[in-house]
Design a protein around this nucleic acid. Structure first.
Length: 822
RNA sequence: GGGCGAGUGGCGGAAUUGGUAUACGCGCGCGACUCAAAAUCGCGUUCUUCGGAUUGAGGGUUCAAGUCCCUCCUCGCCCACCA
């Protein structure tokens, strides 16, 4: 008897698949297409981790499953190789980023191949290939030409460790999300992408997409659309009303209760408004605020501080004087950087007014105690003609009233900021712009793309906020494409999110040299049918790439308004102790070690998919792979036993009708469950269904010792097909042994027949007053009267019913009989 | 503070969506095989005072609740002085 040894069969079938090219996706195939996308990896020096392994295992299971359903499946893979970690790693190792990338990609590739993934490698690329980033640059220029890429001097987040500017999305709790360094503020001329122009589209587009609500909600929250109004207030000394202080508010209903104004320390009017006797205090405060780090300023528990400017503004509705304050709880970057404070109905304003003894006027009726803040809805009071109006209605009524005098306008605000697109680092796509003294920023002509990243000796970042490319004069100095006079290249590079913002489109036509992708191929492949990836990319890559795609659609470059029809986020695999896997804790599990330990890729894939539901974060169980290995071994032994029994019994086909029906029922039941589970990403339950079926088949084997030859052949074939997406090498080997010459992975997914799944007898629970008292087995076709009679007559039930009145009988076919007795 | 989600054996988890709670697997225990160990196979494994009790706690709806409703507790993720 042959033993199951993954070390023999896995490399063998990997080589065979590579040679036959069975996983190649065919452009313009007449079969229905299915694009199964998993996020391409960043090839770090550490190799693939369990998160990658989980994602690609799931992706491969579905790719194979869809292929067996007759789809022309595209399951591609590439490398997102530009970016800071590689560059930092290369600096440490004293090698070039190119060399580091080559080594890391080779390592990743070897690991991915050992997993037995059904990837179409002919479409692979790296974002660092000049043939690829030529098109990243070309696409950037489309933004530039349409005014969506612009240069602006602005205060941005600067990572002093990585020595580069960062986007808002890359700063988490005041730290750079990659290296955890506290960020600083730096004023730099930066390239920006106008993602805010697409804020509404990015929200509204979600309606038609199959995204889990937690992903959609997170994006909506991040964009942070709020409907409100800008309201003008005037300094009491500004008699001509030429110089308004404009505030943004979503609570126009509370303007009668606005008792003071607050400006952010960075607000441009601070200096002008400040009266001379307050100038010293205000200047000191503004300076102190500037010195604080983001993390300090964002601490919501901090006591509010502020300083009076000496100025007063008039409340346009009450005509009362409102002192104008400066305080750092008001953010310069949101709205207008100035607010009207309504201490009675806003917790922050309340705290501030209490501390500095400012006037508090309640304008919404409320049950809450007099000396407290009330933020809930209610009817207006102390509000002139608006008294008695529900505050929700008052919002528009008051805006309309003020608008008559030009004092208020409706305004939609977003939390989303434009995307800071410049990085002062070497290892990224050069931004294809030439600065001409006469013509300003000029696009590099298309026929001169790509702007190739020059090879340099020293690519370390510098503290002066200048990209290392600025130290390469022979590259920087060029001529203006417009006038031919001396000009200089832009030396900033793109962020590593650039290449990943459109990579899925390149898989449709990976090696095209004349366009980023052929339009006919884009039309054929269309959208990504299912995109799996990490939850951590929801407000980064996933939002960025939707923005790019929506812009491309507007330019007529792609056929669909959205890139991804459906998105799912898999859960994280934690270390066995429930903490995050991390190098510093030394609890990182290496997938290659699991494979090499003798369990093989198939058992590892099964154990990952069996671990927990798809989207659930869960600790890794190092013993689990032994369990799935045992499962494979038991299935292997069963098939070997059948093959041997068959050989011995050549020429005498025996069929035992009872067991035959049981084999059929067991396998068809399994087909049904695995099919419905895989349709809903129920990978873990799909596996347990196969385990249950196998346990059942062992019992049947004990009954008939493989006498029912035809039933066993069909049943075992189905079992091998069911396990094929999960354990592809294993299934391929057994499929061949069962007499097939064509791959199991191109075979048609087995179908089940309800007639075979059904049993002739059913077991029902019998309850008295809802408590389980017995079980009865009746014929499947038994009607209610027969079943209830059988239940009443049951040996355990009859004595319990004696002398009692049955007030009601509940009958659920095939499930329960419940007697309600008095 | 806001948004989303989750609490079921020693552990990961299952439950046809209101109908026999604890499937499947891990771990553990006992046994078989073995000089022995590993591997493999078989049996057992929520608790129990053997009446019954049990899905974070308490209440409600129902013939029937892990599932629906209310109150509360705990944990996780994301956002957070966003006016």
């Amino acid at each position: 008897m042959q033993r199951y040894n993954p070390k023999d069969i896995e490399p063998k079938w990997q080589a065979a698949w590579a040679a036959s090219g069975i996983y190649k996706a065919e452009d313009f195939s007449s079969k229905p297409k299915y694009v199964m996308l998993t996020e391409f990896p960043y090839p770090s020096g550490d190799g693939l981790h369990m998160g990658h392994t989980r994602e690609y295992t799931y992706g491969d299971i579905l790719a194979r499953y869809k292929r067996m359903h007759g789809y022309n499946v595209l399951f591609p893979m590439g490398y997102d190789a530009f970016g800071l970690p590689t560059e930092n790693y290369a600096i440490k190792q004293h090698i070039t980023p190119q060399a580091a990338t080559d080594a890391n990609v080779a390592n990743f590739q070897k690991q991915l191949e050992s997993f037995g993934l059904s990837i179409d490698w002919s479409r692979s690329f790296r974002t660092t290939d000049p043939e690829y980033y030529k098109w990243t640059q070309w696409l950037f220029l489309q933004f530039f030409k349409h005014g969506l890429a612009y240069q602006k001097e602005s205060a941005i987040s600067w990572c002093p460790f990585c020595k580069t500017g960062l986007s808002n999305e890359e700063v988490v709790n005041g730290r750079h999300e990659r290296c955890d360094t506290l960020v600083e503020k730096k004023v730099l001329p930066q390239w920006m992408l106008r993602i805010t122009d697409y804020a509404d589209r990015l929200i509204d587009g979600l309606k038609d997409l199959d995204f889990p609500s937690r992903i959609a909600d997170q994006q909506i929250n991040w964009i942070g659309r709020s409907e409100g109004a800008e309201v003008k207030f005037y300094d009491v000394d500004d008699d001509d009303e030429t110089n308004p202080i404009t505030v943004y508010t979503t609570r126009a209903d509370t303007i009668y209760g606005a008792t003071f104004l607050v400006l952010a320390p960075e607000h441009p009017l601070v200096e002008q408004l400040t009266r001379s006797d307050h100038a010293g205090a205000v200047a000191t405060y503004v300076k102190a605020a500037a010195a604080k780090s983001d993390i300090e300023r964002q601490d919501t528990d901090r006591e509010k501080t502020g300083v009076f400017t000496g100025a007063y503004a008039t409340n346009p509705l009450t005509a009362e004087y409102m002192p104008v304050w400066v305080a750092d709880y008001v953010l310069a970057g949101y709205g207008t950087g100035a607010i009207m404070a309504v201490p009675a109905h806003d917790e922050r304003d309340w705290a501030f007014a209490k501390k500095y003894d400012l006037k508090i006027t309640r304008v919404i009726d409320s049950d809450t105690p007099e000396d407290s803040v009330s933020t809930g809805p209610g009817k207006l009071i102390n509000s002139g003609n608006f008294d008695g109006m529900p505050n929700v209605e008052a919002k528009t009524a008051i805006i309309n009233f003020l608008a008559e005098d030009g004092l208020a306008t409706l305004k939609t605000q977003y939390r989303l900021r434009d995307w800071i697109f410049s990085r002062q680092r070497y290892w990224g796509e050069p931004i294809p712009i030439i600065h001409c003294p006469e013509h300003g920023a000029v696009a590099v002509p298309e026929d001169q793309l790509p702007v190739v990243l020059p090879a340099v000796d020293n690519y370390e970042p510098s503290d002066d906020a200048k990209s290392p490319l600025s130290r390469v004069p022979e590259w920087v100095n060029t001529t203006c494409p417009t006038c031919g006079k001396p000009a200089q290249r832009e030396t900033d590079t793109m962020p590593n999110w650039a290449g990943s913002s459109w990579y899925y489109l390149r898989y449709f036509d990976a090696h095209n040299d004349t366009v980023f992708a052929d339009r006919k191929k884009l039309d054929y492949w269309g959208e990504v049918d299912l995109y799996m990836g990490g939850m951590e990319h929801t407000t980064l890559h996933l939002l960025y790439s939707r923005f790019w795609h929506e812009f491309f659609y507007d330019q007529g470059l792609v056929p669909t308004p959205e890139p991804y029809k459906a998105r799912r986020g898999q859960g994280i695999i934690l270390a066995a102790d429930g903490t995050k896997m991390s190098k510093s804790k030394g609890n990182v599990v290496n997938p290659s070690e699991i494979i090499d330990s003798g369990y093989g890729a198939d058992a590892m894939r099964l154990s990952i998919a069996f671990l927990a539901p798809y989207d659930q974060t869960t600790p890794w169980n190092p013993e689990g792979v032994a369990g799935t290995h045992r499962f494979l071994q038991r299935l292997w032994q069963l098939v070997q036993g059948f093959i041997e029994a068959n050989e011995k019994r050549e020429g005498e086909p025996l069929d035992d009708s009872i067991v035959q029906a049981d084999i059929l029922r067991t396998t068809h039941h399994a087909i049904k469950r695995v099919t419905t589970d895989l349709d809903t990403l129920g990978f873990n339950t799909a596996i347990s269904a196969q385990m249950e079926a196998l346990n059942q088949l062992y019992k049947l084997r004990d009954q008939d010792e493989f006498l029912s030859v035809n039933a066993w052949q069909a049943g075992l074939e189905a079992m091998v097909q069911l396990v094929a997406p999960f354990a592809p090498h294993f299934a391929e080997e057994l499929w061949q042994q069962l007499g097939h010459e064509v791959s199991v992975h191109t075979s048609a997914w087995p179908q089940y027949d309800e007639a075979n799944v059904a049993t002739d007898e059913v077991t029902l629970a019998v309850q008295i007053n809802g408590k389980l008292r017995s079980e009865i087995t009746v014929a499947a076709e038994a009607d209610e009267a027969t079943t209830v009679a059988a239940a009443q007559a049951d040996i355990k039930i009859a004595p319990l019913l004696e002398g009692k009145t049955i007030r009601k009988t509940i009958y659920v076919a095939g499930k329960i009989v419940n007697f309600v007795v008095g």
